[in-house]
């Protein structure tokens, strides 16, 4: 009897697991936010490798997700030429600050398409940071285990009328010790496209401020295999109480 009940439980849990009750949306959301928590303050090195040029920046990044209006502040720490440049995003409004001529530019829709600081990320990427958690329908494709990690491959397809530019996104994430980690995100232009247009890879798991997080993000464009943009986190502080004033244009001056 006990065996039967156990079997039944297993069966039930198996069935329930097989149902699309997997919290895919929540997993994607958690994976996307892994480096943000409620608030974060990080120093990272950005290395851009393009055919036309190579750049190395050191950035200070502050994020604050405590309110509806998410805030991001990026300040260039180096090299000297760009030191002091700042990008501020409050909800959907992005503004740039150039210390040399003390000019603040509010981003218009036409600037969305241009790349952010010459990298493989666009200003729009900066804007749509949490897009993947919102406008897509999720479908579990595969699941496998490796070591202590429980991997899942999730296919994201845009909801009807969703204002998104990707026809399909394949998200590889894993769950370890109860937390969701992103491993790779491949972006496809059209659902049936055999090749992705770009790929974002997370790696180099380290302990930062008591949390295990991937500290390396690399974006590659399929058509240009020799190019990449890497963001390498040097140090991060999570959940400090960041003053709201840090996320305003007054902070520019």
């Amino acid at each position: 009897m006990k065996q039967l009940a156990f079997l039944f439980l297993c069966f039930a849990s198996f069935v329930s697991a097989a149902k699309t009750d997997l919290p895919l949306g929540k997993w994607i959301d958690s994976a996307e936010r892994i480096l943000r928590a409620q608030t974060s303050a990080s120093v990272l090195k950005m290395n851009i490798n393009k055919a036309e040029y190579q750049r190395d920046f050191t950035l200070l990044v502050l994020t604050d997700d405590r309110d509806e209006a998410q805030k991001v502040m990026v300040r260039m720490l180096g090299p000297a030429l760009w030191r002091g440049n700042m990008t501020l995003k409050v909800d959907e409004r992005i503004s740039f600050f150039e210390p040399r001529n003390k000019r603040t530019t509010v981003m218009s829709s036409s600037m969305l398409a241009s790349s952010w600081m010459g990298s493989h990320f666009s200003n729009d990427d900066l804007m749509r940071e949490t897009d993947l958690a919102q406008h897509y329908a999720y479908s579990a494709q595969k699941a496998w285990d490796k070591d202590t990690r429980n991997y899942h491959l999730v296919e994201l397809t845009p909801l009807p009328s969703a204002p998104v530019v990707w026809g399909k996104v394949l998200y590889t994430l894993y769950i370890e010790e109860g937390r969701v980690y992103p491993e790779q995100v491949t972006y496809f232009r059209r659902k049936d496209d055999p090749k992705p247009e770009r790929t974002l890879t997370y790696s180099d798991i380290k302990n930062m401020d008591g949390m295990k997080v991937p500290t390396m993000m690399e974006m590659r464009v399929t058509d240009k295999p020799d190019e990449y943009t890497r963001m390498h986190y040097q140090k991060i502080k999570f959940n400090t109480d960041l003053a709201a004033s840090k996320f305003s244009e007054q902070a520019f001056l």
Partner: peptide, 9 residues
């Protein structure tokens, strides 16, 4: 306005 498709805008 801005038109976007994939990584192009």
């Amino acid at each position: 306005a801005l038109i976007q498709a994939g990584r192009h805008g």
